[in-house]
Design a protein around this nucleic acid. Sequence first.
DNA 1: TAGATTGTTAATCGATTAACAATC
DNA 2: TAGATTGTTAATCGATTAACAATC
Lengths: 206, 206
Amino acid sequence: MHIPDATVARLPVYLRCLAMRTGTGTCSSEDLARTAGVNAAQVRKDLSLVGAQGVRGVGYEVNALRAEIRQALGLTHDFPVVIVGAGNLGRALASYGGFGEWGFSIAAILDVDARRIGGAIGGTTVQALTDLETVVDERDIEIGIIATPSSQAQAVGERLAAAGVRSILNFAPTVVRVDEAEVRVVDLSTELQILAYHLQKSALEQ
Amino acid sequence: MHIPDATVARLPVYLRCLAMRTGTGTCSSEDLARTAGVNAAQVRKDLSLVGAQGVRGVGYEVNALRAEIRQALGLTHDFPVVIVGAGNLGRALASYGGFGEWGFSIAAILDVDARRIGGAIGGTTVQALTDLETVVDERDIEIGIIATPSSQAQAVGERLAAAGVRSILNFAPTVVRVDEAEVRVVDLSTELQILAYHLQKSALEQ
DNA sequence: TAGATTGTTAATCGATTAACAATC
DNA sequence: TAGATTGTTAATCGATTAACAATC
């Protein structure tokens, strides 16, 4: 079944909201909508798209709901992830606790800098960037995270794609275009600029 | 003039694409569309919404375009930003180079941990979290960044809002709801989950 | 039964894009 | 003039949401 992009983007939010609850009990679409900050009709529509079923007059069973959403997102097996770049950002990402919770694990952290190679970050030893292809192949890595300086981001993206990685998350503040892989960007200044627009707009309204 | 949200979200991308070019010369909607990864008609529509004007048969003047987009986004003055949390993530954000380029500056970095207070991160001295209200007031801060552990995120969001901050960027992997402020979330696991969905989908298609 | 809440429809709203006249 | 590209229209597509019958 096809799930619209807009729904896919909201599913992780629902998972996060559900994670804040105790394991058992039920939850109405109204409850979930309030914590997620969306419309209740939208919650019901999204949930029916992922195949979750509630009980009229009662709500959704929290545990079953979690399972349905994870299933729909494909979070059914573990995803080994490679982080390229062991600077401040790479370290912050690696020591971010929430990886395992959703079935992602850090298979490797790579860097070019000899002073960083061999060091440990949250239990993972930093390897040389030259190991990229080997690591991707041996550990069956499907997801790569770019946490390098902007100047190296495009080249790393291309290497990841050439090694067979089909999903890339780019944290470097630059455009990375790779035809063979899906690239998502996470960027501080983009977010700040969007906030700035809204600030200006609300200032004009006064 | 009202600019649709979808357009506002693309404007920073255009700025980034334009930043990759030399200061002068022209650029067609087709050029910009290719680097930004969107449709050329969409680029022209977006640009006409921000009031940018091109020349038929030639394209848009790069410098003028940059200026129009910045103007539309409200990037006309400097925005002092406060970062709450001086752990790995806070450090990574603070040492991220692209701040100044778009008119944002780090006015303060705050933390609760006495071992971090007084230390310097990229030229800024870490201050005590108790200084939050004073700093926001004295430096006229309108934007706050939450880079604390999840457990403290909501409380920090509320304090920021109470101190008068109307725009908050939350990097903690948890839901932060504050009625008086706009909160945007940037979250690693959300992005990974969306990638996982697409991986699974393309695997099923084979 | 009465109250609550789902699941779905249908209307509305907003975003995308092909197409093409205008014009440099 | 010929080629290129904008600016805008109108069609299409996708997303949101109010409303309500179904039903626990």
